[in-house]
Amino acid sequence: MPPNSAAQQDTASEAPSLRQQAVLDAVLALMVEEGDQLTMDAVARRASCSKESLYKWFGDRDGLLTATVQWQASRVHAGRYAVQPLDVATLRESLRDFAATWLEVIASSTSVALNRIAIGHAASGKSNLGGIVLANGRFAIGERVKPVLEAGRAAGILDFEDGETAFRTFFGLVGRDIQIRLLLGDRLDLDTAEIRRDAGRAVDQFLALYGRD
């Protein structure tokens, strides 16, 4: 029997162990290889662990998917700044770091596979994977980046009225049409240097819109 939701909630609130990380990487690999045909049995075989361990760590299939999305989203660096008060150079580097790591994540084969499955499930009502991806991906990342923008405003570097609107503008400048093109099968060849250039360009455009003189 799967454990209760309290165990699932505890797993979601803690960083996964190295063994759990290996399981989550196995889930992502299976999504790339097999698409929608993901079962607890298949995950247990790929990760060389028991189904009982999966239920103990993640609660149930939705708990496993939630942890997988959180693990993938954790690769995006958001809000990493330590200098107080915040200065322009530190803000610029923090935003560039977020933009580059987010582009790297969404351009990966694992994210493309995960998002394609989530879109299909959202359309068919097969599962709540679409909601899981939104809550633990886009929305969670937004809540981690918006405090950085608010800190920039408090430091007199940025000027905007609404943090959510400012974040959505920045998010759009970074992502442009890249994610939809990847989801539709466009084989974009984004190497590290190009991603860094795109990230820097997006930050420059955002600061041109919202930066104080």
Rank of each mutant, 00 (worst) to 15 (best):
D97L: 06
I180W: 06
L158C: 07
S94M: 09
A113P: 11
Q8K: 15
V76T: 14
F170N: 05
F160S: 05
L24P: 03
H121I: 01
V203H: 06
Q179G: 02
L182C: 08
V145F: 07
F139D: 12
V69F: 00
A99T: 02
G120P: 08
K56E: 09
G185I: 13
E164A: 09
A199N: 05
L91R: 09
W57Y: 05
S50M: 10
M31P: 01
L182A: 07
A154V: 10
E164T: 07
L209P: 03
G211P: 03
R201I: 01
A22F: 06
M1G: 15
S94F: 08
D97W: 01
T39F: 07
G142V: 08
L182T: 05
T165Y: 10
I119T: 15
E52Y: 06
E93H: 08
G35V: 08
W102S: 00
G137C: 10
V27C: 11
A89R: 15
P16D: 12
N115I: 12
A44I: 07
A22C: 04
D62S: 15
D198V: 00
S53A: 13
F170I: 04
A118I: 13
V145G: 11
C49D: 00
T39H: 09
R201E: 12
W71D: 09
D189W: 01
R176T: 02
A89Y: 09
G130A: 10
A89D: 15
I106E: 06
A15G: 02
D159M: 04
G175M: 04
V83D: 07
R153C: 03
R80A: 12
V203G: 03
I180P: 01
S48A: 13
G79H: 11
V148G: 00
E34V: 07
A78F: 05
S53I: 02
S127A: 10
